[in-house]
Design a protein around this nucleic acid. Structure first.
Lengths: 346, 346
DNA sequence: CTTTAGCACTCGGTTCATGCGAGTGCTAAC
DNA sequence: GTTAGCACTCGCATGAACCGAGTGCTAAAG
């Protein structure tokens, strides 16, 4: 059977309507709401065909039709037209990003918040990978009791600290010496360079502290990964607004699934090369999310993709709008971060 | 009418049953389930009296009775007996606190998580006020572009950083000098001392940087307040498990109310002098929470109460158990924090 | 061959009556 | 004061009747 232009048009009308109303769409609705100029009977025939082809499903015999995952896939791949945001919305996003942020974590949180409030879906934002950041400052603060705090500051004022154990043999003075040595040797380098640095490069004057340095670099690189894998969630309670989750039990299982941050992380971090990913319903690896779609996008610092963000909603989500919003947010976010980081390098 | 021992006993039985089942309790249930040795008719009479006195309510004429807020108030004030945790539970809490934490924020998060998983209610934890902490290390990292990062490390390895603006007239060298001067002058002092410090004490050699110092101290003390007012929430989705929130709409309004962190903050920070506070149903200032009870408690560092934590649940929450759990967690938490801080002072 | 009007049919949701059961309130007897 | 007994009250579950949205099919019109 052929998927001709008319079938496509009808399918689009059904999807558009279903995205809006969340209730099965009947042939008469389509006949009236579009200017397609066909009677409901004709549309009925076409809908029957579309069902046979797997694009539509009937919840029960006498109900209207509901788009299948396959239909949404077709929709996002070929039918959907790019949506435009209203100037007011675009301005509002830009304005959000024009204010001062205290640090990168703050930006991540605000982005998640904005994304969920604009789209009314659940949003998630992955913190930027620090690998491309440059070390601006490093210091070891002895805490006594064989512990010390490794404090680093990178470009853009990003700070991280790591609790490390110090060898018994080192006293505060040694730590201080080591600290200023590290500062001299590592300042200005990229963090990933430092993390993967052969000890040989450092060990010249520091041979005796080899084990300690080893542990330190390990915790630094571990900390980088950990920080990058932190997923900021926002708007989880939006899920409760959608009729598909009117049943508390369903809502709860979905919420429980979403709290598994490692799964979200895989979703966000996966598929390294593409700009946008759209995962629809059963395409999700997770069974609990088979009624959800996930849209993710990357953001950049300069030209390097350093993080990503996404939206979780029902399969009947407003893809066009979500993509438009994410596009705008991605641009503003990338620009902001790029400025913050580049500013430091000039 | 007199609230005699028998009435009390019946009321207690009703409350106990209702806490367990969430459905109205009938006279026969009480007659059978307790060894009170009265017929259902007698209990019926007593229940009628209790209703007249305002301790019980009838959802509708032919249903059993439900305890009123007033009943819960009486219950927690005088009827309730302290519950004991099982040794296994106590051990599990202690074990949780025996592992290494990376920092105070981590402890706060873990505490919130534990509290909600053990009680199955929603939990909240207020980060400790830093006022009593001592400054161990302070440094200003110039970031260029008239900005700098003020990094402080306190007892117990707590780090905070604040972005500050530097006067045009200062170059990196000035900042460095100022930084080490501050370190010499402020190390070992309590943060609240520092924040409220008259500039006169510092201005001797630093007169020319007066405005800058002023701004710095302000942002330090602002940062302390802000950090302390951060409320960590956990287990919000537990709310969905309770039959009183089977209706998605109700659940959503409650969840929306709970997300207002400033309200939670007021709940946790208020009532400065008592150890435990219990707020039942309509006693809550917030109308959305009129079916909820909130239990809060303080935790200490040494002898100073530096923070608090709490549980939000339905009014029919298991108060005795919640208090037992919070007692245990409060002790373990206070002990852990005290050790972390004291260790630094010895 | 395509489109459309017409019609029988399907099936979920609503409404309404019915019955059941849990629970009460009252009364009279113990 | 306590209790047995009984009429009464409602919420809730069940099932019948009905409605309406929607379909599928057929036959006629284009």
């Amino acid at each position: 059977m052929e998927l001709d232009a008319r079938k496509l048009r009808i399918l689009q009308a059904i999807i558009d309507d279903y995205i809006l109303t969340a209730s099965p769409v009947g042939s008469r609705t389509i006949a009236k709401s579009t200017d397609i100029g066909l009677s409901s009977a004709t549309i009925r025939n076409e809908m029957s065909d579309l069902e046979e082809m797997g694009f539509l499903e009937q919840p029960h015999a006498s109900a209207g039709r509901v788009p299948s995952d396959k239909a949404y896939r077709l929709y996002v791949d070929s039918i959907m037209r790019r949506a435009m945001l209203s100037p007011a919305e675009m301005a509002s996003i830009r304005e959000h990003y024009s204010k001062r942020f205290s640090d990168v974590d703050d930006i991540v949180k605000q982005t998640a918040f904005m994304l969920s409030s604009i789209t009314k879906y659940t949003s998630m934002v992955l913190a930027p990978r620090l690998h491309a950041a440059r070390l601006r400052y490093i210091h070891i603060v002895p805490l006594g009791d064989n512990r010390a705090l490794l404090v680093i500051v990178t470009d853009a004022g990003l700070t991280r600290d790591f609790l490390i154990r110090t060898p018994k043999s080192m006293d505060d003075y040694d730590i201080d010496r080591l600290s200023s040595l590290l500062k001299r040797r590592l300042s200005g380098r990229r963090l990933d360079e430092i993390a993967s640095m052969g000890l040989s490069e450092l060990s010249g004057e520091l041979a005796e502290q080899r084990a300690f340095l080893d542990a330190m670099l390990a915790s630094l690189s571990g900390g980088m990964d950990e920080a990058a894998s932190r997923v900021e969630l926002s708007g989880t309670k939006n899920i409760l607004s959608y009729p598909e989750y009117n049943d508390v039990e369903r809502a709860r299982t979905l919420l429980a699934a979403i709290e598994k941050k490692d799964m979200l992380y895989r979703m966000l971090a996966g598929r390294g090369d593409v700009e946008f990913t759209i995962t629809i319903g059963q395409e999700n690896e997770n069974a609990e999310m088979k009624d959800c779609s996930v849209v993710t996008a990357k953001y950049r610092v300069g030209n390097e993709p350093l993080g990503s963000f996404g939206v979780i909603g029902p399969t009947r989500m407003n893809y066009a709008r979500v993509i438009a919003v994410m596009n705008q947010i991605g641009m503003s976010l990338s620009e902001l971060l790029t400025n913050m980081f580049e500013e430091e390098r000039k």
